[in-house]
């Protein structure tokens, strides 16, 4: 299991459009799955837009990512760190 700690770069946090873009990208990495969690909490599937929104992570907060697939992990980490509101 590989892990990363990333700071959320989207201006609105992982809501609405950024959450949708992230979930769609994570779903495209199947069968690899990436879990995303608030530090110390249980992870949720990054390809679930609903779970992402329930996390309610704001801009500048950190999240922990984990996956068995290092390439998938890198892809998701990069998106979490990016400002998806600007895309």
């Amino acid at each position: 299991m590989h892990q990363r700690t990333v700071t959320v770069g989207s201006a609105s946090g992982l809501h609405a459009r950024p959450a949708a873009l992230l979930a769609a990208a994570a779903a495209g990495l199947a069968p690899a799955t990436v879990l995303i969690a608030r530090p110390g909490s249980e992870g949720v599937d990054a390809s679930s837009v609903l779970m992402l929104m329930t996390l309610g992570v704001g801009h500048g907060e950190t999240v922990e990512l984990s996956s068995d697939d290092e390439g998938a992990l890198d892809t998701v980490a990069e998106l979490v760190a990016a400002d998806l509101d600007a895309r």
């Binding site: 609405a16 459009r17 949708a20 979930a23 769609a24 779903a27 949720v44 599937d45 390809s47 679930s48 837009v49 609903l50 779970m51």
Partner: peptide, 16 residues
């Protein structure tokens, strides 16, 4: 299109 796209994501959400 964006509003509908968001609904598509919900319908295909693995947690549901």
């Amino acid at each position: 299109a964006e509003v509908l796209g968001a609904t598509v994501l919900i319908a295909s959400d693995p947690s549901l």
